[in-house]
Simulated assay, not measured.
Amino acid sequence: MTANNTKKEFSVSSKIVSQLLLSLVLGFSILFAVEHYGNVSFIMGIRDPLPGEQPSFYADAPPEYPVIKINYTTPFGTDTKVSVSGWRNQDVYFSDGKFYEYKNKVKVYFNAAVKDCQYGFLFSGIIFILLLFFTKFKLKFK
Rank of each mutant, 00 (worst) to 15 (best):
I30Y: 02
V17W: 08
N39E: 13
G52F: 14
D48F: 06
L50S: 08
P63V: 05
P63F: 05
G27M: 07
P62T: 05
N39V: 12
M44I: 00
N71I: 11
A59N: 13
L26N: 01
M44K: 14
N71C: 06
S18P: 00
K69V: 09
M44Y: 07
Q19I: 10
Y72F: 12
P63C: 04
A59W: 02
P66H: 03
F42Q: 07
L21D: 00
P66S: 04
F32H: 03
K15S: 11
L22W: 04
I43S: 09
D48L: 11
L24W: 02
G45Q: 01
V25G: 07
V40H: 10
Y72P: 00
G45C: 03
V17E: 08
M44C: 09
G27T: 01
P63G: 15
Y58W: 12
I30R: 00
D48Y: 10
F32W: 08
I70G: 02
T73F: 15
T73Y: 14
P49D: 07
L31N: 05
D48V: 08
I43Y: 04
L24Q: 04
S23R: 06
P62D: 02
Q19M: 13
A61S: 13
H36P: 04
P51I: 02
I68N: 01
Y72Q: 00
F28Q: 04
T73V: 15
L26M: 14
E35S: 10
V34D: 00
Q54T: 15
K69F: 11
S18F: 03
S23V: 02
I43K: 13
G27D: 07
V67C: 00
K15H: 06
I46Q: 08
Y58C: 07
I68P: 00
A33G: 11
H36S: 11
V67W: 00
P51K: 06
L31F: 03
F42H: 12
Y72G: 02
I68K: 13
T73W: 13
P62I: 11
G45R: 04
P66W: 00
I68G: 00
D48R: 11
Y37N: 12
V17D: 08
A61V: 13
G38M: 01
M44D: 08
F32T: 04
A33N: 06
Y58T: 15
G27Q: 09
H36D: 06
S29P: 05
V25C: 07
Q54S: 13
L50Y: 10
I70A: 02
H36A: 13
V25Y: 01
I16G: 00
S18L: 09
L24Y: 05
S29L: 12
S18Y: 05
G27P: 10
P55L: 04
P49Q: 08
I70E: 01
V67M: 00
V25E: 05
L50M: 12
Y37T: 10
A59E: 12
L50F: 11
R47Q: 14
E53C: 08
S56E: 15
G27A: 07
A61N: 10
S18R: 06
P62C: 05
G27Y: 08
L50H: 09
A33D: 03
G38Y: 06
S14N: 07
S41D: 12
P66G: 01
K15E: 09
F42P: 08
D48W: 07
S29C: 11
P55M: 05
A59C: 10
A59H: 13
A33F: 13
E53M: 10
G52V: 08
T73P: 08
I30P: 04
M44V: 01
L24M: 11
P62E: 02
I46V: 14
L50T: 06
A61W: 11
